[in-house]
Design a protein around this nucleic acid. Structure first.
Lengths: 176, 176
DNA sequence: GGAAAGCACAGACTTTTGTTCTGCCAATAG
DNA sequence: CTATTGGCAGAACAAAAGTCTGTGCTTTCC
């Protein structure tokens, strides 16, 4: 199996500027990608072929990366969610760290700016499995330590939303 | 709009124990939920109606939560990904914090065990928008402070995987 | 300002897929 | 040993996806 050793980058910036219809379609598909084109058309105000055309172009432009089923973590035997901050000396992005992607428990891997190097999102069967995964991290060269944040309750977990907040609510400045 | 004020919980533990076919089907649907049932059937070794039946049951059992399009963050105008740790006095879960879910920039919200109370995953247009969002967090009652981890590069970002690591690689114990 | 070209949409059609039904087989319980 | 339940394959039907053509619009060039 091949591992992604390069960061996920925007494939092509795609001069295509999203208009209001595209935004609406994306908003619908993010919520439920199984709706028929006819129903999407009703929601956004277009005919089914028009929706089809736009979705096809959105896919070709890489704006829609794919369609995935969202499965319940506990139901598939992974009730324990955690974020693991990895501190490494030198530079965190070693090739060997990419091999962690082979574990289905690892869902995200980012290099970050802050008081740590890499943030991992991991979902394991139990604390024992998490320990095993931490062991796999510790044997990587350059890893100085990890800090784990065990999720107690998840209040929100959703995919990338198509909408963007245009005007933020004004906040009264503190009186100092 | 209503906000989820309760944590996402497993709807029903569903006595349904996943067999090998279910695991395979889930694995396929997580990768690409647009494959026809006939093709899934070829991959896992079942007929299209059998796959249909199982997927239907997996949906009814809540094991498949839904099907969502995955859109590219930068392409929809949100190239800046960050994790925000929120420190609050008392108890972080105030009703008003749930209102942050109204912002499409907020993708995840967890209460965690560790040296912080709440972890947010936010995706914004730029640092300016992130600052606006942080302002919205700071005006919440009880919020003492935040710590932001700006994502520099994303090496892996994928939905919940259906697979579970059965036997972990053995790691030689350090010689102390 | 006018004409031509490109784009996007709606309607009708074809093809593919989803969905349902029926019968059969195996496993289990009585 | 028999009856019953659950699940799967094959066939038939319904529905959606995908394609094609024409039309109206905007844009752009002359």
């Amino acid at each position: 199996m091949d591992y992604e050793t390069e960061a996920i980058r925007p494939r092509q910036v795609s001069t295509r500027s999203l208009d209001a219809f595209d935004r609406k379609i994306l908003g619908v598909l993010v919520k439920d990608a199984r709706l028929p084109y006819a129903e999407i058309g009703n929601l956004v105000g277009l005919s089914p072929p028009a929706v089809h055309d736009r979705v096809k172009k959105l896919r070709e432009a890489g704006i829609i990366r794919g369609v995935h089923a969202s499965v319940d973590g506990p139901a598939v035997g992974k009730p324990l969610l955690a974020y693991v901050h990895v501190d490494a000396e030198g530079w965190g992005k070693s090739q060997r760290m990419m091999r962690l992607q082979a574990f289905p428990e690892v869902e995200e891997m980012h290099s970050v700016a802050g008081d740590t190097c890499v943030v991992l999102k991991v979902r394991t069967a139990d604390t024992h499995a998490l320990e095993h995964l931490l062991l796999q991290i510790y044997i990587l060269p350059g890893v100085k330590g990890t800090k784990s944040y065990i999720v107690l309750s998840t209040y929100l977990e959703r995919p990338v939303q198509a909408e963007v907040t245009g005007t933020w609510p004004s906040v009264p400045m503190p009186d100092d």
